[in-house]
Design a binder for these strands. Structure first.
Lengths: 338, 338
DNA sequence: TTTGACTGTGACACCGGTGTCATAATATTT
DNA sequence: AAATATTATGACACCGGTGTCACAGTCAAA
């Protein structure tokens, strides 16, 4: 019942620690016979290397940190799912670090995180990938990082995003194709680059059909359900009332739906509602929300996989990639009532 | 820009490593003058100890693992929030480990987790706290653990739960007080002890008012939204249709609400719906769900705090505690229509 | 047969802390 | 003042791995 270490394996197999280490790491220059012998002892003693000792020797922790501050819990869950998938495939662990700081405090908070846990790399989820000070700080400290769903940077960092502008364009086009001309828009959190992108897509679709942009139809949200309620109130109070609302995420869209229903409006007959993200809530409510499905899990998994590759093989060229999103139509949008 | 280690601090301060270590750990037997001097060097060199090295020496990782397999994502989010709060207060990190295995495979999966990450302790969230083989395994391996929302065991382990039976009793009483006599019930996942507890509370309330228990009104769910849809279908097809439905969690209740609305039933006029947990969705939909609020974050925080205390001071007596839940009435329940 | 290149192996230092123990310095008791 | 107890400090081994380098053995080329 004693602890099995590299030393016990070495003495059992009658070889040196270093040779055991070579077998462990699949290093060359070990004869087939020796390798067999050591592997047999691994089995016999049920040996597994101590990752902490390994970490100390190599100055690695085998831990990836995930930094987030997002009002949408389901988004975080999806990010975690993707990150975990990548970690498990590579024998890494995932440390989660919610963080609400900004500016100076953010930097020192992250600095402390790095000092107390010696992360091998860090995933920046929205909005952190869009904070230049943070990106510069990590670059200066030589901490590998990957950005998820952030704006494109003209550098060599790892970044995986989806095409928010195009998604917003398509869903707005969808509404327009149903005859809507007065389409309200609820913006997301101003810190998130997706917020600008989605707004741009909305405006491009309007322009594409020569629908005049009307500033009164635009509300400032922050991706939270609560902000959706506030925005919905303003929008539903407008006169004339818009025939459709496009909210920058599904939580806010759900808020619009709730308020509209509370006010005895029929959705989609009296007003169409569209969201973004394809969060679980989009199909948990009635009517189901028309929305844009983003491959959040896939994006994060790709980002973390690349991050781990980069940690193990720093010479490999990192790449930035943009995944496609797709329109999902449900019951919350319909042809405008004449 | 060199790395600052305990050695550099020691030579800078003109003392031995060990003395620096003493200052670091607030050990006694260091003169005030020496302590001052060392602390000054800490500041000057901006020193922070390497947790990996410390971990190797003490055979600790400063990491708590959180084991989960729960169809309700929002529940996990809340668990994480509570666990993180406790970890941050104690300079621990949280490693998340979703795991869908059962029986033998579960044990070997957890064994591997422990081997590859040397967790200092582990939080068992539902349903894992109710798996005797797992509890025995961890006890045998002497891995400290805490159970959240699991059944009471007659031992000295750490456990924090809420009173599911009482909560279910109260919400059923609430429905009965509104005149309902035909109340359908949707069970949760059979692996979760809460499932039995909530069912017991439901039956106790019925018995309390001499309402005969009718097996046809009971559906097997598993806490997922999808299972709620299936159960809802059976229930709404019953004739006569029950006047109320009590689902064992809010996701399943939301599914009932969606299906009922889809079928043109008015909630709560035609049918009352009650849930459990007070998940975000309970207030994101219309009508809002009457439900039982459980202090999930608080429970988990308490459990993890106690777990960390137990790791640091193993002599302290662990305790089991049951927190209270409370009824939240919203729009989804109303007096039965005569 | 000698030379040089290459393969397989182990000794040993090192990563950055902590634990043990001996000893020097100081305080207390007799 | 001497004997004893207490406090402060450092030397050194240790945690369990990896990196460096020296060296013996093997094999092909000269």
């Amino acid at each position: 019942m004693k602890k099995v270490t590299i030393n016990s394996v070495a003495s059992h197999a009658g070889v040196s620690k270093k040779t055991v280490s070579r077998v462990l790491n699949n290093e060359p220059n070990v004869s087939a016979a020796t390798r067999e012998k050591v592997l047999a002892v691994f089995k016999e003693l049920d040996y597994t290397p101590n990752p902490i000792a390994r970490g100390l020797a190599q100055n690695r922790s085998f831990i990836i940190g995930c930094l987030y501050d997002n009002p949408s819990k389901s988004y975080i869950t999806r990010v975690q799912t993707g990150a975990l998938a990548a970690c498990q495939e590579n024998n890494y662990n995932l440390l989660i670090h919610p963080c609400e700081y900004r500016g100076e405090a953010l930097i020192s908070n992250v600095e402390q995180l790095l000092q107390t846990s010696r992360l091998d790399g860090i995933v920046l989820t929205p909005p952190f990938g869009d904070f230049p000070e943070l990106v510069e700080f990590l670059t200066a400290k030589k901490i590998p990082f990957a950005r998820v769903a952030s704006a494109i940077l003209q550098d060599e960092s790892i970044s995986v995003r989806s095409n928010d502008e195009q998604g917003a364009f398509e869903i707005t086009e969808h509404l327009i194709s149903l005859g809507h001309k007065s389409i309200a828009f609820i913006k997301g959190h101003p810190d998130h680059s997706a917020t600008q992108q989605r707004f741009k897509g909305y405006r491009r679709a309007l322009a594409n059909h020569n629908i005049e942009f009307d500033e009164r139809l635009v509300e400032e949200g922050n991706f939270s359900y609560h902000s959706g309620v506030d925005s919905a109130r303003s929008i539903l109070d407008l006169s004339p009332r818009p025939t459709a609302v496009f909210a920058s995420n599904d939580y806010m869209a759900a808020a619009v739906l709730k308020l509209a229903t509370q006010r005895q409006l029929r959705v989609p007959d009296d007003i169409s509602i569209a969201g973004f993200d394809n969060a679980p809530i989009a199909r948990h409510i009635w009517p189901g929300l028309t929305t844009i499905a983003q491959p959040v899990e896939e994006m994060t998994k790709l980002a973390v996989t690349q991050l781990i590759n980069h940690i193990t093989e720093p010479q490999e060229q990192p790449f930035q990639i943009t995944l496609e999103s797709r329109l999902i139509t449900r019951e919350s949008t319909a042809r405008v009532n004449p």
